[in-house]
């Protein structure tokens, strides 16, 4: 039980918020509302999976919001050009993966600090997109674009399946696949991992490329919910995902964290805003409460982390 103390703390907080909502408000626990909330958080969830890998290696990626914006526009432009929606999504994912690979290559083989590399790409990509689109939205999309022509229920179920598959894949992969173990090894002690024969450069490159791919994919999934695409989507996505991973118990210095924790972190941060609206708290305090939750979560994490270390060195 002790091994999951951090995840349990987050889960307990979520239950507390939900209990508060159940006791004092109506309408939160309806299928409609929950599926709305789920769909609203799918992009954050998918990108957070990649961000977990990056943070596990002790790196960071603050360019995901800008990559998200570019890939949204790419999806729309490709679809408007007459390509099938699935092909447009594929192209967006590839573009995301390429941008992620660019960051990854600089971090892995050129040994440049990830925060500087991704700060540079964040600014350059966002402003480059603004320059290119001049802020114009992509409209005139084919009728089959919105939700692949599916009904809302079908689309929600599809998203649920995609999200569950991705979560399971990354949770299992991180724990049992060789690549997953290599990520932990690289993040815990890179020099030792190298001596053990792990190509840590390849690990670093891969986590950035995978995150880029996931960002592109989630941008495309989000884009098809609407019939036009704005040019400024994804602002602040990097903060949301990093916060979710940190709240979920991963240590920012690498080597420790779980997919389950990240998913719980996304859930907690995702329900806070709507919960405040339901509770009738003014929207103006949302940022302050979010900040408090992040600080509380990481403080609890570290305290439980120290205690756990003394018991076993898992």
């Amino acid at each position: 039980m002790k091994a999951y103390a951090r995840e349990l703390a987050v889960a307990a907080t979520i239950l507390l918020v939900l209990a508060l909502l159940a006791a004092t408000t109506h309408g939160f626990f309806t299928v409609d509302n929950l599926s709305d909330l789920f769909l609203a958080n799918v992009p954050v969830l998918i990108v957070s999976l990649g961000m977990t890998l990056i943070i596990l290696t002790g790196q960071i990626d603050i360019s995901v919001g800008s990559v998200f914006a570019v890939c949204s526009i790419v999806t729309g432009v490709a679809a408007r050009a007459g390509l099938p929606v699935l092909v447009a999504m594929l192209i967006a994912s590839v573009v995301g993966a390429l941008l992620g690979s660019f960051n990854g290559a600089l971090v892995a083989w050129m040994r440049m600090p990830s925060i500087v590399v991704t700060l540079a790409s964040m600014v350059a990509i966002r402003d480059g997109l603004r320059w290119q689109t001049q802020g114009a939205w992509v409209g005139d999309l084919p009728a089959s674009f919105q939700r692949f022509g599916l009904s809302q229920t079908a689309y929600t179920i599809l998203m649920l399946v995609v999200a569950v598959l991705l979560i399971v894949f990354f949770a299992v992969g991180l724990r049992y696949f060789r690549g997953g173990r290599n990520i932990f090894a690289t993040g815990s002690n890179e020099a030792a991992a190298r001596i053990l024969g792990i190509d840590t450069n390849r690990v670093l490159f891969s986590v950035f490329a995978i995150t880029g791919l996931l960002t592109g994919f989630s941008a495309a999934l989000n884009a098809v919910r609407f019939n036009q695409i704005p040019s400024n989507s994804g602002i602040g996505l990097e903060l949301k995902t990093i916060a979710a991973v940190a709240v979920g118990g991963a240590t920012i210095t690498g080597g420790s964290g779980t997919i389950a924790g990240t998913v719980l972190g996304v859930v907690l941060l995702g329900i806070i805003g709507p919960a405040l609206t339901f509770l009738g708290v003014s929207a103006y305090w949302e940022h302050a409460i979010q900040g408090l939750i992040i600080l509380a979560a990481v403080s609890v994490n570290v305290l439980s982390h120290y205690r756990r270390r003394q018991v076993s060195h898992a």
Partner: peptide, 12 residues
């Protein structure tokens, strides 16, 4: 992470 939290807190 600490200053990410206070970043949100102070603005909030």
């Amino acid at each position: 992470i600490v200053t990410l939290g206070t970043f949100s807190l102070y603005r909030g």
